[in-house]
């Protein structure tokens, strides 16, 4: 994505990003093992190990997420996620049109994310992730919060299925996000940007 000003990704954001990525990946893999359990063979690892790992990793992610919230809301970084609601539909349509024609959408200097990015990142970072954390914590520590019975069955199932549904959305996002991270000019430009802060192509050029 072209930027008039190749703004540097702050260190804290980069640390948060990679920590979250790693933890989320572990959570997804262990979660698959827990959900699609089979008596005869484990999909990825032993069920008990997967359970313990999922629990501890989830707790770590919860802590890191809280730290990110403090960061985002405290420093104003969170403003990057808020889309321009007015005319959003038109902007998104325009952006998709540009992609379909094979071009790059030009975005302004002050913005880090293009409109589609803003929208999707907002939904993931401030929608899916916190709800995953909350449902996971209820599952783990506070199952009493869930109703005793819900629609004739044990009351924990909406929490459990909500957690699973959000995980599905997160996994689908993960797949697309990883791929798009490899879409920079050259396979690693965006990766370098997220590791080093900026790509080594200087200001004013494609990051």
């Amino acid at each position: 994505m072209a930027r008039a000003d190749a703004s540097v990704v702050p260190v804290s954001v980069r640390i948060w990003h990679w920590l979250t990525a790693a933890l989320f990946l572990v959570l997804t893999l262990t979660g698959i093992d827990l959900h699609f359990a089979d008596a005869d063979s484990a999909l990825i690892m032993d069920y008990g190990w997967a359970n313990s790992l999922h629990d501890w990793t989830g707790l770590a992610l919860s802590g890191i997420y809280v730290a990110f919230l403090v960061l985002a809301l405290g420093t104003g970084y969170g403003r990057n996620y808020v889309p321009e609601w007015r005319g959003l539909g038109g902007e998104v349509r325009h952006q998709i049109g540009v992609y379909l024609r094979g071009g790059d959408p030009q975005i302004g200097a002050e913005t880090r994310f293009n409109p589609l990015q803003r929208l999707s990142y907002l939904l993931i970072v401030f929608g899916v992730l916190p709800l995953l954390v909350v449902t996971g914590l209820i599952f783990l520590y506070y199952p009493g919060i869930a109703p005793q019975r819900f629609m004739g069955m044990a009351g924990l199932w909406p929490i459990a299925q909500g957690h699973y549904l959000l995980a599905i959305l997160g996994t689908a996002f993960l797949v697309v996000h990883i791929y798009m991270g490899l879409l920079g000019p050259g396979a690693t430009a965006k990766l370098k940007r997220m590791v080093r802060g900026s790509s080594d192509q200087g200001p004013g050029s494609h990051p």
Binding site: L34, H35, F36, A37, Y47, N51, G152, M153, A154, L156, W157, A160, Q161, Y164, L165, I168, L169, T171, A172, V175
Partner: peptide, 22 residues
Amino acid sequence: EDSYVMGSTRNTALDWLAYVLV
């Protein structure tokens, strides 16, 4: 009916949603 047991009480509809979305 009595309790949610991880790994045993899956929902076929949500599983298919998972397969489709991913």
